[in-house]
Each structure stands twice: as C-alpha cells, then as structure tokens.
Simulated assay, not measured.
Amino acid sequence: MKFPAVWGATYPPAGKTPTRMISLYVNFFGEGNFHLPMTKFVGDLLTRYGIHIS
C-alpha cells in the first residue's frame, strides 16, 4: 500500500534506516483513523530533540 504521490510521502530503500524521516505504519491511518498534521517545523523539532512518533 502506497500513499498518493500528491502527499509527497517518501520511502527509504529496502534495508536502509531512514534519516530525517518519520516512520509510520499504514494501518494506523486506515484502521485506526489516525491523522498526523505535519509541517517542516514540527519535523525539525522532532528531529532536534530525538522524539519518535510510534
């Protein structure tokens, strides 16, 4: 399952650990009705303080 291209989602190569990315399970969105508003600012804060959303 892939996100629509207009969302700008990126996928790391298989076997590589993503850097400056947030990993989320697709099931959170579909089955859990999970929504995550994300801006570059929020992403930078999470990266700066080493916070992971899981």
Results as ranks from 00 to 15, higher is better:
residue 1 M to P: 07
residue 1 M to N: 02
residue 1 M to V: 10
residue 1 M to Y: 10
residue 1 M to R: 01
residue 2 K to H: 08
residue 2 K to S: 10
residue 3 F to R: 04
residue 3 F to V: 03
residue 3 F to A: 02
residue 3 F to E: 00
residue 4 P to G: 11
residue 4 P to V: 03
residue 4 P to E: 02
residue 4 P to A: 10
residue 5 A to W: 03
residue 5 A to R: 11
residue 5 A to T: 12
residue 5 A to I: 01
residue 6 V to F: 13
residue 6 V to C: 08
residue 6 V to H: 15
residue 6 V to A: 14
residue 6 V to G: 05
residue 7 W to R: 06
residue 7 W to L: 14
residue 7 W to M: 13
residue 8 G to V: 07
residue 8 G to M: 11
residue 8 G to C: 09
residue 8 G to R: 03
residue 8 G to W: 05
residue 8 G to K: 02
residue 8 G to N: 12
residue 9 A to G: 01
residue 10 T to R: 04
residue 10 T to K: 11
residue 11 Y to K: 01
residue 11 Y to R: 12
residue 11 Y to W: 07
residue 11 Y to V: 09
residue 12 P to Y: 11
residue 12 P to D: 00
residue 12 P to V: 05
residue 12 P to F: 02
residue 12 P to N: 04
residue 13 P to Y: 03
residue 14 A to C: 01
residue 14 A to Q: 09
residue 15 G to F: 06
residue 15 G to V: 00
residue 16 K to V: 14
residue 17 T to H: 06
residue 18 P to S: 04
residue 18 P to F: 04
residue 18 P to H: 12
residue 18 P to L: 08
residue 18 P to C: 02
residue 19 T to A: 08
residue 20 R to F: 00
residue 20 R to A: 11
residue 21 M to G: 03
residue 22 I to E: 05
residue 22 I to V: 08
residue 22 I to T: 08
residue 23 S to C: 07
residue 23 S to I: 12
residue 23 S to Y: 02
residue 23 S to R: 12
residue 23 S to F: 13
residue 23 S to V: 15
residue 23 S to H: 07
residue 24 L to S: 06
residue 25 Y to P: 14
residue 25 Y to T: 12
residue 25 Y to E: 15
residue 25 Y to H: 14
residue 25 Y to M: 08
residue 25 Y to G: 01
residue 25 Y to I: 08
residue 26 V to F: 03
residue 27 N to H: 00
residue 27 N to T: 10
residue 27 N to F: 10
residue 27 N to V: 05
residue 28 F to W: 15
residue 28 F to L: 14
residue 29 F to Q: 05
residue 29 F to T: 02
residue 29 F to H: 05
residue 30 G to R: 15
residue 31 E to G: 13
residue 31 E to Y: 14
residue 31 E to P: 02
residue 32 G to P: 00
residue 32 G to H: 13
residue 33 N to S: 14
residue 33 N to P: 00
residue 33 N to T: 14
residue 34 F to C: 08
residue 34 F to A: 05
residue 34 F to L: 01
residue 35 H to F: 15
residue 35 H to I: 12
residue 35 H to Y: 12
residue 35 H to P: 06
residue 36 L to Y: 05
residue 36 L to S: 05
residue 36 L to A: 05
residue 37 P to M: 06
residue 37 P to V: 00
residue 37 P to C: 08
residue 37 P to H: 00
residue 38 M to V: 14
residue 39 T to W: 01
residue 39 T to E: 00
residue 39 T to I: 07
residue 39 T to D: 02
residue 40 K to N: 01
residue 40 K to G: 04
residue 40 K to V: 13
residue 41 F to T: 11
residue 41 F to M: 09
residue 42 V to C: 11
residue 42 V to W: 08
residue 42 V to M: 09
residue 43 G to V: 06
residue 43 G to M: 10
residue 43 G to P: 10
residue 44 D to I: 15
residue 45 L to A: 03
residue 45 L to S: 04
residue 45 L to I: 14
residue 45 L to W: 06
residue 45 L to V: 13
residue 46 L to H: 04
residue 46 L to V: 13
residue 46 L to E: 09
residue 46 L to P: 07
residue 47 T to P: 02
residue 47 T to Y: 15
residue 48 R to F: 11
residue 48 R to T: 09
residue 49 Y to Q: 07
residue 49 Y to S: 03
residue 50 G to W: 06
residue 50 G to V: 03
residue 50 G to R: 04
residue 50 G to F: 11
residue 50 G to A: 10
residue 51 I to P: 10
residue 52 H to I: 13
residue 52 H to N: 05
residue 53 I to Q: 02
residue 53 I to N: 07
residue 53 I to D: 04
residue 54 S to N: 08
residue 54 S to C: 11
